[in-house]
């Protein structure tokens, strides 16, 4: 019982001292600051809202499953699906994730955006591109606002300017035309 009494009395003092020294440690030590920045998470933009229409020789293809795959670095690919409506139109929502990766100087994660369909056993690439960074890319967002995809089109490599890093380009693989 005596032991218990002492414990109760000294507990508030002990906790105050503990919290105080923890606070001191957290606010003063660079090493601890480095340690915690490892846990810091960043917003990573993976894909803007996507609007598109799928046709074959100009005629809309309804009820076609469109697959979008988004990958950040070596993370697992995030796959979602949409169905085309009577006009062949489809829509994907914007996608953002939180990640610790951008905090590392060794991080070279690329963001991959892929959108494809399978029609009569044939695979078509509506969109395939990779980009660097964590913010939305203006010129990719503009193109993804309307994917005009006729399945008769050939798949082309389209080079457009990188707005965020003007010294570079985006390379898009796509059957779509703008």
């Amino acid at each position: 019982m005596k032991f218990k009494q002492i414990n109760y009395k000294s507990a508030p003092v002990f906790i105050t001292v503990l919290l105080g020294s923890l606070l001191l440690l957290l606010s003063s030590t660079q090493a601890v600051a480095d340690m915690f920045s490892f846990f810091k998470k960043y917003d990573v933009h993976l894909c803007p809202e996507v609007h598109g229409q799928i046709t074959l020789e100009g005629k809309p293809i309804p009820n076609l499953e469109v697959i979008r795959g988004l990958t950040y670095g070596d993370d697992d690919e995030l796959v979602d699906k949409a169905m085309t409506d009577e006009q062949g139109r489809f829509l994907f929502p914007e996608k953002n994730i939180r990640s610790r990766k951008p905090g590392s100087m060794f991080d070279e994660s690329r963001r991959r955006q892929t959108i494809g369909v399978v029609h009569r056993g044939q695979q078509y690439v509506l969109w395939y591109t990779q980009s660097i960074g964590i913010e939305a890319n203006k010129n990719l967002t503009d193109k993804l606002n309307y994917l005009n995809c006729d399945l008769n089109n050939s798949e082309e490599k389209i080079k457009i300017k990188n707005h965020e890093y003007p010294q570079g380009n985006h390379l898009i693989h796509s059957i779509c035309r703008w």
């Binding site: 795959g69 690919e77 796959v79 690329r110 892929t114 494809g116 990779q130 390379l171």
Partner: peptide, 9 residues
């Protein structure tokens, strides 16, 4: 990915 591997820029 679902569409395999391709190179970027």
């Amino acid at each position: 990915g679902v569409l395999g591997y391709r190179l970027g820029e």
